[in-house]
Design a binder for these strands. Structure first.
Lengths: 337, 337
DNA sequence: TTGTATGCGTTATCAC
DNA sequence: GTGATAACGCATACAA
């Protein structure tokens, strides 16, 4: 860094106002009492000098940073972007800042560790983990030292607080929707649990429900969206498949693209469902039938839980499952007779 | 915050390792020399105690935070979400952290001020401003105290560095594309400059170019995407309009939705263009013809510029205009004869 | 109400 | 190579 003028300190302000630094400290922090006239002088002096409190110095003596750390896997996706915004906003209303540690979209284990360590260096007072990939075991060591809540994904570990939208419910509802339309042969693009603790359970729930109710299920393992072409090939190879369930809206979009390329009519030839309901792709334009997660609510509740934890209270529930909603669009219809 | 065990300090580590705190400081910071054997003992002790450096304390004495502040208007939009991610990643590779100040989507002036002040409290070493709304005059006071670069929007002020994708070029290219297809009556959804310094110039460029080349232009002022229905009404009221240009992809999507509702065929009855090329909506599924901004590049270049400024160098160019690209999709076609 | 003194955790400058 | 010691900017208990 090039040489730059030193930032003014309370001492500079004190000198300018002709008082002691204690007085300045009191007026800028708002604690303790100062004469109204003195206060005026100090405020004025501070303004003239362009004084701004030094958060580091304050943190040192206060042993507090009023900061919560958000570990986000990929802020570039609409889901996490929204979540982040909701959390920032809510945290601010509680008097906390949110500092984000986000990774290269795809965290390596070492990156992930570095990210968490950075948060620790910053002395964040609590942690909000937003990542469908990070397994619980890797979170536990941090949860042991810091109030930690997991947002946007199911979590059952007793020592971790969580806020999420029930994946079981969503997967089941979508399955029921298709069954209700009369579909009996349904393909499900599944994601292994180890790849995502959100998409894993939801696709598993879809499969389970469909089987429960006697449908024929074609499972297609589809961890990466790039393989959508292969999924379609697989689906078309089997007779009697009249619907495809994707584990996320983005997966569904990729699917729709491929179907479009091959001239497969949706929902005429094939019904398609998504999952999430975030962003622009599920708008009326595409009309994707999907399960909608209450993303803003997840964000605010996660922050609320963290704040309660910080206040030494116990959040109302250890694991908060928020209600989602089935949104029926135009990509699902009864199968062709 | 509930009472929590104090974090271990170098003193704790020193005691555990049987050395002075100076030694510990040297091994954790990597400066100065220590005996290999001693180092081992210290590293071990640090690990056992779960020691992590305190960034605040370090910042106090070092007068550096290795942190750059990003002021982002709305991280929930795909554009800023991507930008943020790109910046984080690049900054990390330079050894800097990015702390984000983002607002309620729609900043009030006071929020905006508070956000910037928060960044100042944190003693960010530089500022990256990503907001199409914040006028230059409001940035100048900060630019005077901190190396500042504006990312993702045109900027001509001599004391502000900027990295962006030329709005003139994009608007012009899209206009030329439509003219080349044979359109002669074209509606442009414009945004006033005061609402957005990105969308303002680009829509102005569209209008200018179309007029230059003799087309009939219908200007529709459309600051909010919610009014898309009204735009369509306006367009349909005029005879001979065969194309509509939107100031962003999201505007274009809203437009397409409304056109779909009214049964207007795109591109048969009407061609439509967007702008940005971020997110999922411009995928082949929708096939929106648009101008694509090199968003990742904007992010990395902005960070590079900031780092150079920090190093006391002058960035190669004060105002870096990065090349975008015309992406022709399926929402534009020659007008019906 | 105001001022003084102390300590927060770290790095840097010295002696040793 | 190692260990005291002095800042850094602020809050606070205490004295005035």
């Amino acid at each position: 860094m090039a040489d730059r003028p030193r930032n003014p300190t309370i001492i500079d302000v004190a000198r300018a106002a002709g008082v002691s630094k204690s007085v300045v400290s009191r007026v800028v922090s708002g604690r303790g009492s100062v004469g109204e006239e003195t206060r005026q002088r100090v405020v004025l002096a501070a303004q003239e000098l362009g004084y701004v409190v030094n958060a580091s110095a304050r943190a040192m003596v206060a042993h507090r940073t009023y900061t919560v750390g958000a570990f986000v896997r990929d802020a570039a996706t609409a889901f996490y972007g929204h979540l982040l915004t909701a959390m920032q906003e809510r945290a601010a209303s509680h008097g906390y800042r949110v500092v984000t540690a986000t990774g290269s979209g795809r965290f390596e284990v070492s990156d992930e560790y570095r990210a968490l360590e950075t948060l620790a260096m910053l002395r964040v007072e609590a942690l909000i983990v937003c990542s469908g990939l990070l397994p619980s075991e890797r979170i536990l060591p941090f949860a042991a030292r810091l109030p930690t809540v997991v947002a946007g994904r199911p979590e059952t570990h007793p020592s971790i607080t969580s806020v999420y939208c029930d994946e079981e419910e969503g997967g089941t509802a979508l399955a029921d929707h298709l069954l209700g339309l009369g579909h009996r042969g349904i393909a499900v693009v599944t994601v292994p649990l180890r790849s995502s603790v959100t998409m894993g359970p939801r696709s598993a729930a879809m499969v389970r429900r469909l089987r429960e109710r006697g449908a024929r299920v074609l499972e297609i393992e589809g961890p990466t969206r790039e393989a959508a072409g292969a999924w379609v090939t697989e689906v078309l190879r089997h007779d009697g498949i009249t619907a495809v369930m994707a584990p996320s809206d983005r997966h569904a979009i990729s699917l729709l693209e491929q179907l479009q390329l091959r001239g497969v009519d949706v929902p005429g030839d094939l019904s398609v469902t998504g999952y999430d309901g975030i962003g622009d792709m599920t708008t009326s334009l595409i009309g994707l039938t999907h399960w909608r997660q209450p993303i803003d609510l997840i964000g605010t509740r996660a922050v609320d839980a963290v704040v309660q934890l910080l206040d030494g209270e116990q959040p109302p529930q250890h694991h908060q499952a928020l209600p989602g909603a089935l949104v029926v669009g135009r990509t699902t219809a009864p199968p062709r007779p």
